Simulated assay, not measured.
Amino acid sequence: MTSTHSIRESDFLAESTRSGVASSDWGQIQQRSQQVAPGLSLTSLQCETRRDLRVIPDRPPEAAAWVMAVSLTGHSCFETTSGIQWLFKPASHSWGLRTGHKGVRHYPAGQRISQLRLVLAPELANHYLGPVSRLLSGKISQPISNTLALSRAAQQLLHNHAHLSPLTLHQASLELLQLALPAEGSHVARSSGMVHVLALIHAGQADRLSVAELARYAGLSVRRFKQAFHEQTRQGVLQYIQQQRMLRGLQLLRQGWRVSQVAYQLGYEHPNNFSAAFLRYFGHAPRDTVVGKVA
């Protein structure tokens, strides 16, 4: 009979994020996490278990977020302290609203587990998911069988995401999100051209492009592009670009960047211009965001 090995979550994460594949007596694991865009991140997990493994939480609960998990191979389970189970089965995907609950992860012995998780901030759910977020109602869905297209897209991301450019990574993540959602109600871009435009914006490469130039990237007339863009984002093109620019600035400030550094990173000619735009958008000066830092 195979014994069960228990490991603290902090130790599990420390082993799984080392360069290369970490090996232990219970098996091997490799896990990578990347931010795709503000409020959207991607985590890949590849694990081979020789013993039953229980990962015990010992860290503060993570922030609430929508999670779309694609399981390619292997069985595993996440069980919250309230008894809710999130099952992962081969060739399936599931949706759930992570509400900050702690839980135990179970990895049975003899498994080769490959998983991808897209994690989405709740405030962006309506933008990315549209009415689908209301249909899911915050519950963890039962595993849904992957389509061939979804499995192929997930496989490519699993093996290549660490080497993709930010623009390509964002585009591939949006395409995976689109494939995993029901067709009705999704605000995820339906055409590769619009996906490319959104990826340009989130990567900060559209700040100096005109609406006409973005329309050409999307392969649409300016009028049709504006209509399609508003249908998918519920905002105008320039309004959305400015929103994403400010969100990137806020993220950099929270990471400890100085105001002047953020201003030049975002393409402002003078920090005062950035500070004025930031104040208009958020209602407070960027200096106030950087707690304990001198701007």
Rank of each mutant, 00 (worst) to 15 (best):
R234L: 05
A218F: 12
H270L: 12
V237I: 09
N272W: 01
Y217F: 14
Q243Y: 03
P271L: 08
L266C: 06
R280S: 04
Y240F: 01
N272G: 02
R254D: 04
F282K: 11
R280M: 02
V259P: 05
T289D: 09
N273A: 13
R224I: 12
H230I: 03
L238A: 13
Y264L: 09
S260H: 01
T233S: 13
L250M: 14
L279D: 09
V237Y: 01
A218L: 04
K226Q: 14
R234C: 06
Q261R: 07
R280T: 04
L266Y: 12
R245S: 00
R280F: 02
A276W: 07
A277F: 05
S275P: 06
S221T: 15
Q261A: 15
L250R: 14
H230R: 09
Q251I: 09
G256D: 03
R234K: 04
S260K: 05
F278T: 12
Y268N: 05
Q265C: 09
G283I: 13
V291G: 03
P271D: 12
Y268A: 03
M246N: 07
Y264R: 10
Y240W: 00
F225H: 05
G283A: 10
R223D: 13
V290Q: 10
R248V: 02
E231H: 04
T233D: 03
T289W: 10
L279E: 13
G236M: 02
L252C: 08
F278L: 08
K226G: 01
Q255H: 15
F282N: 10
